[in-house]
Every structure is written in structure tokens, then in C-alpha cells.
């Protein structure tokens, strides 16, 4: 079984602060982390590799320093890693990102499953996984809570949707996007940490992937951010202090005004 997991380096949004006066993000000193959702995708991949044998390859597209998340994934147990990095990749939206990632999957070759996290916490789009599937013309199963069965030519997975869960069978190869509660990601092992320090990580650029300039980075991106604002604070609420019993009465008063009482 050959599984590729696409992982992303993201700023820790819990640490992102807003400069209220200027209305911009303060990125200085904000640590970069492995996108939390991707840990679950990685664990799901490694779980099945441990059971069936094979390799787990992690890939990421990003600036040179994004290599750090690949090393982190190797320390957790991934077998191989590839960094997709090129100045020409900058400014990519989900179209160009998935296009580039899909090319890398083709170059790796003989891949049975591509796994991504459900979404990245910086963009929150959840679009990359299905777009990779479209680029490769593979089937896709999104919002996967767990992979129930896997063998040489098919997979059964649970897909969580509004109001319930679909049990879906798909032929291989397939792209899946993995939810947060799929499993409990393992911690880095000592062996993994040693391996992560030594492993050679190849870097593939635009030409290695045989992609024209018009299909990567900003040039290959149909969408563009034109404005960024901070959400207006809706702070004109009333705040009450006082004895618990009085506060409770006021609380019930506010419920009375709504339709729910």
C-alpha cells in the first residue's frame, strides 16, 4: 500500500493577535505548526501501513522552511517526505495548490490513497482534497471519520454528514479528507526523531513537476484576495453585575424577549 499524506504548515491561529489600530494580523513571533487536522490524516495512513505494510509519503507545498512539518511527520512515523518549493508557487489558491500537489502524486507514482486533513486552520477552505481528486480524476470521499476496511482494490470509510453518517465503498486509487476525531495521533518516537534528523528531503520545483508557469502560484490561481478587514466587534451588549438571584431574573427576562421562551 502506498499512501501519500498532504500536510500543511500553518500559523498557530490561537497565537495570532490583531493590531486593533491598524486592523492587521500581527505575525511576528507567531509559531508555525503542522496543521492540526493533518495529524489525523497522517495517523490514519500510518495505522493502515502498520497493518498492511507499504509506505507513507508526506508532501507539502510551501516555502523552504515548511520542511519543518515534513520532519515532524517523519518523527511521528512517516517513511518518506518531499518538499514542493519554488518561488513560482507563491500566491497559490486552492486551484493551483491542488494542481501542484496532484502533479507530485503522479510523479511519486503507484499511489493507492491520498489523504488530506479536512481543512487547514489558516485558510479553512476544505477545498484542496476534492480538488486533488478532480485533478487526478480519482474518486473522493470527504469528511471521513474512520477508514473501516482497506485492501488492495477497495476501501470502506465512514463519511460524516448532517444528521448522520454514510458508509461508503470506493475503488482505489482514491482521495480522502480526514476529520478530527478519526483517531488519536501518536507522538514522535525516539527512532522517528533520529530518522527525522537524518532523512534527505528532496525538493521539487515547477520544472521538476513539468508544470507551465500559467498553472502554478499566482498565475495559476483564478481567485485573488482584494481586501482584508477585521470583523467588527459587536460589543454593544449590556453587562450585568449583582446578586445571583437578580442576575437569574434578568437572564430569564432576556429569554422572554426571544421566541424561545
Amino acid at each position: 500500500m502506498r499512501i501519500v499524506v498532504a500536510v500543511k504548515q500553518v500559523p498557530d491561529t490561537a497565537e495570532v493577535r490583531i493590531d486593533e489600530e491598524r486592523g492587521t494580523l500581527i505575525r511576528e513571533g507567531v509559531p508555525s505548526i503542522l496543521n492540526p487536522f493533518d495529524e489525523y490524516a497522517l495517523e490514519e495512513a500510518m495505522k493502515w501501513r502498520d497493518e498492511l505494510g507499504g509506505t507513507v509519503t508526506v508532501i507539502t507545498m510551501g516555502p523552504p522552511q515548511a520542511e519543518a512539518v515534513l520532519r515532524e511527520a517523519v518523527s511521528m512515523g512517516a517513511d518518506e517526505a518531499v518538499l514542493l518549493s519554488d518561488r513560482a508557487f507563491a500566491g497559490a489558491d486552492t486551484w493551483a495548490t491542488s494542481h501542484t500537489l496532484a502533479k507530485a502524486v503522479e510523479k511519486i507514482g503507484d499511489v493507492d490513497i491520498v489523504m488530506t486533513g479536512k481543512q487547514a486552520i489558516d485558510g479553512d477552505t476544505a477545498q484542496t482534497g476534492p480538488s486533488i481528486a478532480a485533478s487526478l480524476d480519482w474518486p473522493q470521499v470527504t469528511f471521513v471519520g474512520s477508514v473501516r476496511e482497506l485492501n488492495g482494490d477497495s476501501m470502506v470509510a465512514e463519511r460524516y454528514v448532517e444528521g448522520g453518517c454514510e458508509v461508503i465503498r470506493s475503488s482505489l486509487p482514491v482521495v480522502i479528507t480526514v476529520l478530527k476525531d478519526a483517531n488519536t495521533p501518536r507522538l514522535p518516537s525516539l527512532r522517528g526523531k533520529m530518522k527525522s534528523r537524518k532523512i534527505e528531503i528532496p525538493v521539487w520545483g515547477r520544472e521538476d513537476l513539468d508544470l507551465p508557469e500559467s498553472e502554478v502560484g499566482l498565475d495559476g490561481s483564478p481567485t485573488r484576495v482584494v481586501k482584508i478587514t477585521t470583523p467588527e466587534s459587536t460589543s454593544n451588549g449590556e453587562i450585568h453585575h449583582g446578586e445571583p438571584e437578580d442576575l437569574a431574573k434578568l437572564l430569564v427576562d432576556s429569554l422572554l424577549g426571544s421566541e424561545v421562551f
Binding site: 486551484w95 479553512d124 476534492p130 480538488s131 485533478s135 481567485t223
Partner: peptide, 23 residues
């Protein structure tokens, strides 16, 4: 932006070579 829309739209947008904004 339900599980259906978020499954379907990225696939369509990629195939039609056009942009998609999420959520």
C-alpha cells in the same frame, strides 16, 4: 457550505478551471 456543497464544488471548480471561494 454543507458537507455536500463542500464535496461537490471544489471538484467542479477544478474541472472547469475556475475559482471557488469557501464558506
Amino acid at each position: 457550505a454543507t458537507t455536500t456543497g463542500r464535496d461537490l464544488m471544489p471538484r467542479i471548480a477544478k474541472n472547469l478551471n475556475t475559482g471557488l471561494t469557501a464558506d
